[in-house]
Design a protein around this nucleic acid. Structure first.
Lengths: 220, 220
DNA sequence: GCTCGATTTGACCGTTTGGTCAGGTTTTAC
DNA sequence: GTAAAACCTGACCAAACGGTCAAATCGAGC
């Protein structure tokens, strides 16, 4: 695992810079919390489970993060960084087919590498986004509005068929995240999953081909 | 609300057939439990919330369903009936374009009418399907295998492009359920949602057109 | 090797939760 | 109308939970 940052939220006493031990333990906690929150949601998660998974006592965990909500906030902050990165790379100047294809692949890779991030995000949103509602309405909306305009421009220039940008984005989110969120179901039905390279490749190809052939005029 | 059946699971004492009162109260409980479990997941759900929402005391609720797990099981049993119905109607004899289009529309209608069912199903699966794992591997797998064969036959007969049936089914599930599961995000980004007829219609049209144009040769 | 702050722990507390129980009230059957 | 069964409730319980705290331990700088 990687990509877990600091996310200042009251460790032991008011301090300046983080020590090596702090860095290590905060990382462990966030990693463990990620799994726990992803699997059980905020209310279902148990602080003691997280502590055990992080290899420390509950008391010590609460020395680093003052409360359950603090841990959750820190985890979500890290999550959003990871989760929204691919959309930012959608380039208005690029070829729509290549851009969308790359975006789909990035999202699937992300679902494969951080399946728990996907589940955690889904969980938070499904509960009404009590913690990240402002982010959704603020910076995410701004980002999506911007990229929707990119898609509209592509359509106006005849590079893709006219299509509602929001629905297109939702489709890509839905299909790619599905492989992480519903991994259990997929494994039950196919005997494999996105963790395995072969299946991941076929998922990427099928999703990309259907979406692209649906949105962009066929090129072959 | 409707479509809540009995789902025998230990009411007060060993009995034969259900009374009017039983029918009414079990229905209320299942309805309330549906919302609660959908929003908070199994562990996050609170028995007392369900009782309050059903307009009765916690003790009385436990008179009808012996334990939290019993309620959850009953809710899931009802859920599966509702949730898997549309796929059964996929007709091998029908026109692929019409069949898939109808299936997509049915799934979106279902997401619009029972958004909580969608969330509940997602929640259960995201936690590893501890309660319905056997159903997924058993009757659902059988159903999906059957319908996958239908899709393969369509492809073999040149009625649709060759496409992995599983991925196609997952795409339809993902896109249609997304409108229920991520309703909060969708509302934050678009200001509307699948509950509203206009938006639902545009969702149906966009999803259907992209999927169909991606899978079936264009007919325009 | 001493000191002082950072780190860690176990004991503890108040609250919440799922579930039980004895007994009261209502409905049903005759 | 009355007895039995069905229904309902409030008081109660044990376990689990999030969180506090005093005290023990560790580690870097001198």
């Amino acid at each position: 695992m990687s990509a877990f940052s600091e996310s200042e939220t009251g460790n032991g006493r008011g301090n300046g810079s983080a020590t090596k031990i702090q860095e290590k333990n905060r990382g462990r906690i966030l990693e463990a919390a990620f799994s726990e929150f992803a699997q059980f949601g905020y209310r279902g998660a148990r602080i003691e489970h997280i502590a055990a998974a992080a290899g420390m006592s509950k008391s010590n965990l609460l020395y680093y993060f003052g409360s359950k909500k603090d841990i959750y906030k820190a985890v979500l902050a890290d999550l959003l960084d990871i989760w929204l990165a691919p959309l930012r790379t959608l380039d208005p100047e690029g070829d729509p087919r290549e851009e969308l294809s790359a975006y789909i692949n990035q999202k699937i890779e992300l679902s494969a590498r951080y399946p728990e991030a996907s589940k955690l995000f889904a969980n938070e949103v499904m509960q009404g986004a009590p913690m990240i509602g402002d982010v959704l309405e603020g910076s995410l909306k701004a980002l999506v509005d911007e990229k929707a305009q990119v898609i509209r421009t592509w359509a106006a220039n005849g590079k893709i068929r006219p299509v509602d940008p929001h629905h297109l984005i939702f489709m890509i989110w839905a299909t790619t995240q599905h492989y992480a969120d519903f991994a259990t179901q997929i494994r039950a039905l196919t005997g494999t999953g996105i963790e395995e390279a072969e299946f991941r490749k076929s998922a990427e190809e099928t999703v990309a081909s259907i979406v692209l052939d649906g949105v962009v005029a066929r090129q072959g």
